[in-house]
Design a protein around this nucleic acid. Sequence first.
DNA 1: GTAAGGATTGGC
DNA 2: CCAATCCTTACT
Length: 168
Amino acid sequence: MAVRLPAQFFLRDVLDVAPELIGKMLVRRFDDGRIEKYRITETEAYRGIEDLACHASKGRTPRTQIIFQEGGKVYVYLIYGMHWMLNFVAGKENEAFAVLIRGIEGFSGPGRVGRELELDRSFYGESLIDSSRIWVENADPISKIHTSKRIGVEYSGEWKEKMWRFYL
DNA sequence: GTAAGGATTGGC
DNA sequence: CCAATCCTTACT
């Protein structure tokens, strides 16, 4: 029996949350009532205001404020004018942790994830604990998870060296 | 008000 | 390699 991940799952260090999301089931209930489940295959951790690759390092702005809230919420933003990036906020209030969902089974790349899930700005701040249209369910642990440097953060100095990308 | 650039993708 | 496409942020 699949169980929705509770708030406690997200209220931890993003370096625990991000790799543990690999293999979990991302569930989307579309407007027409159709429910699809996708295995999460790739994530990246963004860790607080000190992490220059993390949007929270720019401080609290209308766009980033959700990252500073308690874990378990959705952070979405539009990039390059066309791709909706799906993130989950992690950690306690003001820790400013986020996990970017970079891939789900059958769809590689964060832009393709957002397109498949039909995301838009209305998902900003959505609670993964309460929502009836997007949440995460538990699944058997994955034995072998790969790590690498994060993608597309060349501007972040020493932070680009962190091995904070996780994938099957 | 104006301008620069982005946690990307797909096509040439 | 580079255009697409538009929002956010910083600066005048």
